[in-house]
């Protein structure tokens, strides 16, 4: 593990990005070559309204240090209202996780449109910095809990 160890706490972030806006915004960040931290691994989902609490819980327990959800701006959801439902659900998931020991900085729901490549890079940078600033993994990782 030698090489990896040197990286110390190098957080890994699961990204759940809606196909129509944030995933496309991430593509645009690439097309316009806006460099940003590479801790996030993006998973394409149809809409932020597809996000179930399991996605967050599983990511965190399995080893993610943070979870980032990206959807279309309010009123812009490709399916009209998916992001509004996502917003309510996420608010509750986050407060529940906060309550049992997950720092709020590890969870974020952001609206990034397909044209906001620069903003995508910005919010991901900011989020990643926030997760890094916690300086250690959270306490609910499976390995951590069992030890």
């Amino acid at each position: 593990m030698g090489k990896e160890k040197d990286r110390g706490y190098d957080p890994v972030i699961v990204g759940l990005l809606c196909n129509w806006c944030t995933y496309a915004g991430a593509d645009l960040a690439g097309t316009t070559r806006i460099k940003h931290p590479q801790n996030m691994r993006a998973i394409r989902i149809p809409c932020s309204g597809r996000v179930s609490p399991h996605f967050l819980f599983t990511s965190l327990f399995q080893g993610a240090d943070g979870v980032f959800i990206g959807g279309c701006h309010p009123a812009d959801c490709h399916y009209t209202s998916g992001n509004y439902y996502a917003r309510r659900r996420f608010a509750l998931m986050k407060s529940l996780l906060d309550f049992v020991g997950i720092e709020p900085d590890r969870l974020r729901l952001e609206w990034v449109s397909a044209s906001e490549g620069d903003r995508f890079a910005e919010v991901v940078t900011e989020f990643t910095e926030g997760v890094k600033a916690l300086e250690r993994p959270h306490s609910l990782k499976r390995d951590g809990l069992e030890s």
Partner: peptide, 24 residues
């Protein structure tokens, strides 16, 4: 869109191409 899949507490809904098992 999958809004229903996430709404269903009973886990009774699935979505082709983006089903729970695949995302898991």
């Amino acid at each position: 869109c999958g809004a229903c899949v996430a709404a269903c507490m009973d886990g009774a809904l699935e979505m082709k191409i983006f089903n729970d098992e695949q995302i898991y």
